[in-house]
């Protein structure tokens, strides 16, 4: 049974001169305790998807089912108990903490707004949380500006854990951090995921980071999933041309300047205001044929492509 099921999820933003199809029909599921990576370039709709999952944005269409309850359009009061099970970690460790609140107050916020008094008191719980994410619990009374980027991101993680959620949406949680700190935070998230049995929807543009965190991976392009599957399948035997190009584009220290077998996509991602007809990737795809312009390939067997790798 899946913890979270998403069916035909859509978000269209009205814009001058048309509609931005930020997310255009997503289907995926997340099992309890599982980590799903949502990968793609800017404008693919991954962040919008994350915001819809925790109900910060209202979907235009489709369904979000959490623990067998349809939460797509659930109102504020009915949503409350579910908010405690669904939390979010943000990208920007500077913007995501209120600069005028102490760290203790920030981490306690989810408890305060829901009127929860944990046994032993809020302070004790907050200090446990700080310790859990590797911060000194004595720093309870400090302000965010006194912490480094990595430490702030830990505070954000502690806040997300305060309500003991079952699913956390992590929106690019390490991309704003220094390299050496990124690894610390990834390790922390991995450890928390293992120890607490949390499910994650991990949103990232960096395939290498996702590989170290996620059991399953969904690759998005212009508001749609082009490929979804088990981690090793995606990384060892990518079937969608876009997935292959994305993997190939990552500069790899181990390769040290070798350039054989590299795939270089031409051009930029088209605007989601006016996505290409048929397969959205066809304008940058080296395998595109006439059929790609007329028929949109459905997501079957984990890949949405008329000419997937390993099929011929």
């Amino acid at each position: 049974m899946s913890l979270l099921a998403v069916e035909g999820l859509t978000k269209h933003f009205p814009a001058r001169g048309g509609v931005v199809r930020a997310v255009d029909g997503l289907d995926f599921t997340v099992r309890a305790g599982e980590t799903l990576g949502l990968v793609g370039e800017s404008g693919c709709g991954k962040t919008t998807t994350g915001r819809m999952l925790v109900r910060l944005l209202e979907p235009t269409g489709g369904r979000i089912v959490f623990e067998d309850r349809d939460i797509t359009h659930l109102g504020g009061r009915a949503m409350r108990p579910l908010r405690q099970e669904l939390q979010i970690i943000f990208q920007d460790p500077y913007a995501s903490l209120n600069p005028r609140h102490t760290v203790g107050r920030i981490v306690a916020m989810p408890l305060t707004v829901n009127g929860i008094r944990p046994p032993g008191g809020v302070k004790k719980r907050v200090q446990e949380l700080l310790e859990l994410v590797g911060l000194n619990p004595e720093h309870y009374n400090r302000y965010p500006h006194e912490f480094s980027g990595g430490q702030r991101q830990r505070v954000g993680i502690a806040r997300a854990l305060a309500l003991r959620p079952k699913l956390i949406v992590a929106d690019e949680p390490v991309s704003a951090l220094d390299v050496s700190i990124q690894a610390q935070v990834i390790n922390l998230l991995r450890q928390l995921q293992r120890d607490l049995g949390l499910a994650f929807v991990f949103i990232a543009h960096d395939l290498a980071v996702v590989r170290h965190f996620c059991q399953r991976v969904a690759v998005m392009y212009l508001g749609r999933i082009v490929e979804i599957g088990e981690r090793d399948e995606i990384y060892e035997r990518p079937r969608h041309p876009y997935t292959r190009a994305l993997l190939s584009a990552i500069p790899n220290v181990a390769k040290l300047g070798e350039s054989e077998g590299r795939i270089r996509l031409s051009g930029d991602v088209p605007t989601p205001m006016n996505p290409p007809s048929g397969c959205r990737f066809r304008t940058r795809c080296w395998k595109a044929q006439d059929v790609c312009a007329t028929e949109e390939p459905p997501l079957t067997g984990g890949v949405a492509c008329h000419f997937p790798e390993g099929a011929s």
Partner: peptide, 14 residues
Amino acid sequence: EREFIEAARASGAG
């Protein structure tokens, strides 16, 4: 639009 406001909303703050 800052994320700490979104964090409060995501926790069910009124």
